[in-house]
Simulated scan of single mutants.
Amino acid sequence: MSIEELKIEIAKKVLETDDEDLLSEIEMLLNYNEKVVLEELPKHVQEGIKRGLKQAEEGKLTPHDEVMKRYAKYL
């Protein structure tokens, strides 16, 4: 899907929804101009992110739905 096609699909979904919370979240995302730069984060946070990315590359992940099933009784 091209970037233009993606924009059109997102615009269609936005126009079709009446969910005010969702629209507010979309607005906040679109208005957020600052991007977090890894180097600006504390060293321990940088290391944690790098460790997580390495684990993801190695396939050491647990799918979201599996985690939700496992911990549903606590929610």
Score class of each variant (00 low, 15 high):
residue 25 E to M: 10
residue 57 E to H: 07
residue 34 E to A: 07
residue 2 S to N: 12
residue 72 A to I: 08
residue 53 L to V: 10
residue 20 E to A: 09
residue 10 I to M: 04
residue 29 L to W: 09
residue 13 K to A: 15
residue 7 K to R: 13
residue 44 H to K: 13
residue 74 Y to P: 00
residue 24 S to L: 07
residue 36 V to P: 02
residue 73 K to I: 07
residue 12 K to E: 09
residue 51 R to N: 12
residue 72 A to E: 08
residue 75 L to W: 09
residue 44 H to M: 11
residue 66 E to D: 14
residue 17 T to C: 05
residue 72 A to N: 04
residue 3 I to A: 15
residue 75 L to P: 00
residue 11 A to P: 04
residue 26 I to Y: 03
residue 63 P to K: 03
residue 22 L to C: 05
residue 29 L to G: 06
residue 73 K to G: 07
residue 56 A to L: 14
residue 41 L to Q: 03
residue 16 E to M: 07
residue 22 L to Q: 06
residue 22 L to G: 03
residue 60 K to D: 11
residue 62 T to I: 15
residue 18 D to R: 15
residue 9 E to S: 09
residue 37 V to R: 09
residue 51 R to P: 02
residue 62 T to M: 11
residue 42 P to C: 02
residue 2 S to Y: 06
residue 23 L to H: 03
residue 14 V to F: 07
residue 6 L to H: 05
residue 15 L to C: 06
residue 17 T to N: 00
residue 70 R to K: 15
residue 52 G to V: 03
residue 45 V to K: 06
residue 43 K to L: 14
residue 27 E to A: 14
residue 18 D to P: 01
residue 57 E to Q: 14
residue 63 P to A: 00
residue 36 V to G: 02
residue 41 L to V: 05
residue 42 P to H: 01
residue 32 Y to H: 15
residue 18 D to A: 10
residue 18 D to Y: 08
residue 1 M to G: 09
residue 57 E to M: 12
residue 70 R to S: 06
residue 71 Y to E: 06
residue 37 V to H: 09
residue 54 K to Y: 09
residue 11 A to C: 10
residue 58 E to W: 00
residue 29 L to F: 12
residue 54 K to G: 02
residue 4 E to A: 14
residue 17 T to A: 02
residue 51 R to A: 12
residue 38 L to E: 08
residue 36 V to L: 10
residue 56 A to T: 13
residue 58 E to I: 04
residue 49 I to Q: 03
residue 68 M to P: 00
residue 16 E to A: 11
residue 51 R to W: 08
residue 16 E to Y: 04
residue 55 Q to L: 15
residue 56 A to F: 15
residue 9 E to M: 11
residue 21 D to N: 13
residue 45 V to P: 01
residue 25 E to G: 10
residue 22 L to N: 01
residue 73 K to Y: 13
residue 65 D to Q: 14
residue 30 L to T: 06
residue 52 G to F: 03
residue 13 K to T: 07
residue 31 N to D: 11
residue 60 K to L: 09
residue 35 K to N: 14
residue 14 V to H: 04
residue 36 V to S: 13
residue 66 E to W: 05
residue 73 K to E: 12
residue 41 L to N: 03
residue 17 T to G: 03
residue 8 I to L: 09
residue 40 E to V: 05
residue 31 N to C: 08
residue 53 L to Q: 08
residue 25 E to P: 02
residue 2 S to A: 04
residue 4 E to H: 08
residue 42 P to I: 04
residue 8 I to K: 14
residue 2 S to R: 03
residue 4 E to W: 08
residue 17 T to H: 02
residue 75 L to G: 01
residue 2 S to T: 15
residue 44 H to I: 13
residue 44 H to L: 10
residue 13 K to D: 11
residue 59 G to V: 01
residue 67 V to D: 01
